[in-house]
Structure formats: C-alpha cells, structure tokens
Design a protein around this nucleic acid. Structure first.
Lengths: 206, 206
DNA sequence: TGATAAACGGAACATTGTTCCGTATATTTC
DNA sequence: GAAATATACGGAACAATGTTCCGTTTATCA
C-alpha cells in the first residue's frame, strides 16, 4: 500500500505557490542553492554576503526573500530534511524492506553527522529555530514509521519499535561523537539495527 | 591521606606569577570577575564592551590581557572549573565520604547545567577551545577519583567505577535535558548515585 | 623626585547583519 | 506592440561588535 504520507509535499524550492515574478523565483532558488553550498563549505556562520555573491544577486535581493539570516538557515535545513526523507521512498521501491530500512538509517546517520554545525544553532536559544524540531519530527517520524512497519510486516524486525525513539537514539549517537569518527558511528548504528532483528539471532552483540 | 592532587593549584585570578604592575593585576581581576557576571546574565555572546564597562576599564585595557574574546571565555570557564573542583576538598573535610561524594556530584551537575551556553561554543569547531576538554578532565578526574576511592574504601560503593566514565555520564545527563528541568536532572543523578552503592540494596531502583 | 617602562582609555578600523531607496524589469492592459 | 504599473533588483548606508593603534597617564625604581 505504501501510502504517500502527509510528509510528502516538500519545499523543494523557495516560494512555491504565490504569484511571484519569474525572476524572483529564479533568484530565490539560486540563493537557496548557493546557501546550501556555502554552509557546507564554510559552516553556518558564513557571511550572508558570500551567499549573495555565489548566487549572483545583490544583498537586497537576498534579504527580500530571506529577511533574517536564520530564515536562510531554516530553509536550507528544511530542504535537506526533505531530501533525506525522500530517499526512503526510493529505497523502498528498490530494495527489500529490511535493506531499505538499513540503508535509510545510514542515510539518516550521515544527515545528522553533517548537521553538527546546525545543532549548536538549535541549542543557541534563538527562538527563530523553535519550529525546526517539530518540522524534523513531522517529516521523519512517518517516513521511518513506514519503513519499520514494512520490515516488521515480513517479520524481519520487532514490531514494538517506536520510530521517534529510534530517531532520537541515532541522533544522539551520531551527534555525540566529538571527533570525525564517522566509521565508529556507522558501526554503532549497525549494532542498533542488528538489535532490531526479530528474533535476536545467535552472534548478535545485543 | 587525601593527597593534594596536582589539580590543586588553580587560576583563581588572572595573571598569577609574572611581574605585573599592581593596577594591571587589579584590572585583570576586575575584568575576569565582570566577565563571569555578564556571561551568567546575558550568555557567552554578550558584547566585550559590556564586560569592559562593568569592570570599569577601557576596551584597550581588557584587550591587553585577553587579546581574543575566546580568551575571556576560556578564563572564566577555567576559573569555574577550578571553583567546582575545589569544593570537593571542602566536602571531604566536612562530611562522610559517601555524603561528600553525593554532594559533589550534585555540585558538578549544577555546574554542567549552568554551562549549557558554553557547550555550544565548545562544539563550534573554533580551535581556540581545543584545550578546554583536556583542562576539564585534568581537573575533575583526580578530584572525583579521590572521592570515589574514599567512598569505596569504607565499602560504601563499588570499587570499579571509573571517574571519567561517571563524569561523562552525568555530563550527558545534565546537558541533554533541553528544558529547564533541573529537578529532573537531579533525580536522575540521584538514581545514578544510588546505583553506585555496594551492594545493591533492597528498594534501589537500579 | 625624576626617569622610564608599563598600562590605560577610547577613537578608529574591519567584518557582518540589516535597512532603505533610486533604478530596472516582468507582467498586464489596451 | 507599447505604455502603465506593480514588483523586484542592487548596493550604498547604518548598526552592532570584535580588534587594533597610539597618545596620554601612572606605577615602579633608582
């Protein structure tokens, strides 16, 4: 059945519906795209001017669509959450339910690890980011829930796993590792997934 | 025996030994003290000028001793680490080994909770703060280690607790709680301490 | 007490977020 | 297709804040 969950309609480009002039739409997209790159390169503290320059627009143009620096950060964050959530459907279509689940959890792990810079912004106390945790959950919980359901339906994993708990657990795992030990995190997540299997198999570490 | 651990000689005031003019020493102390207050009031993002003003010195004077903003933050952090570490000796002198341990762990919990703003600075990736984690560990590990040793000597707690593990465990506990649920954290730490007791007693939740 | 090195204070500079407004252009109207 | 108009554009200018510089003041010492 795989119902298209509510969390499907994504913000793939800034300014979706409104009656905007074509150039405005084009520029907004360019800015968002530039912001994504610049943030990835120089971190979320990169100057707004750099983003405007990379997008090939003036600062005024940037500020017209993203009145606050935090608006840009939020927009990029949401877009990447959407992108990560969207891969779940791809994996589901391409792989067995268990493999889809495993692949997506690793994808999610990478997402969290890449967003380390953002996590400090989230905890900065700036109320501008208050909405992000909810957005995060609203997008990811149904997606992972569906993957879990499909895997448990074919009796590959336990049926009593809460999507939200798993999201948080992995989130903490991946965000906590101070150094660049991406490998370590991957292994930890592997263990976690192993622990989901039903029934626990011989040789499992959990 | 209670050996005065290496971690005793603390930076209680900026500029300890060097041949400094009296006014310089006085001003440096005033700045450090003002910084502590201002950071507590307005967070670590407070403007340097506010600190200079509160200390009653010019900006130039402040910058003479703390050439970078991060130097101020580091100095305050170290001073508060020292203050927290120092209470262990007081508690040891005043209370039973078990009570001293418990009290100090709560003191440490409060310290971590109060430093939430700093923790994001630590993870900001700014290499200026690279030294802090080591400082943190160098100060706290011997102190807690001694408290644990004393408590285990009188057979109140298990002997196989690693000071560092406990520091980290409580650190994560106290830092993770997003809201201002200080009470919740206190209870969690209480549980943890309960779990240290040797042997596990009837009625223990662990 | 006078000489001098050290310290002081704050003006000035650099960077960066944000606002403002004169100019340019996409869209609509006829 | 051309004029009218609302919309968008670009970047100069402002504000906040970290940092540097240097003329003036002062603690220290002989």
């Amino acid at each position: 059945m795989a119902p298209k969950s509510d969390a499907e309609s994504a913000v793939t480009s800034a300014l979706v519906s409104a009656n905007v002039r074509a150039d405005a739409q084009r520029n907004a997209d360019a800015v968002l795209s530039a912001a994504k790159e610049v943030f990835a390169e120089k971190g979320v503290d990169a100057p707004v001017r750099d983003i405007a320059a990379k997008a090939g627009v003036g600062i005024g143009t940037l500020y017209r669509r993203f009145p606050k620096r935090s608006d840009l950060i939020k927009a990029v964050f949401k877009q990447e959450v959407d992108a990560c959530a969207a891969t779940a459907a791809d994996f589901s279509a391409q792989y067995s339910s268990m493999e889809a689940l495993t692949r997506w959890l690793h994808r999610y792990t990478d997402f969290i690890a890449a967003k380390r810079g953002l996590s400090s912004a989230l905890r900065s106390g700036d109320p501008a980011y208050d909405e992000l945790p909810d957005y995060f959950r609203a997008r990811f919980e149904p997606v992972l829930g569906e993957l879990l359901r499909q895997a448990s339906e074919v009796q590959e994993i336990r049926a009593d796993i809460e999507a939200y708990d798993l999201l948080r657990a992995i989130g903490n795992l991946a965000a906590a590792t101070g150094d660049g030990s991406a490998d370590h995190t991957r292994r930890m997540v592997g263990l976690l997934v192993d622990g989901l299997r039903n029934p626990p198999r011989k040789g499992s570490n959990l």
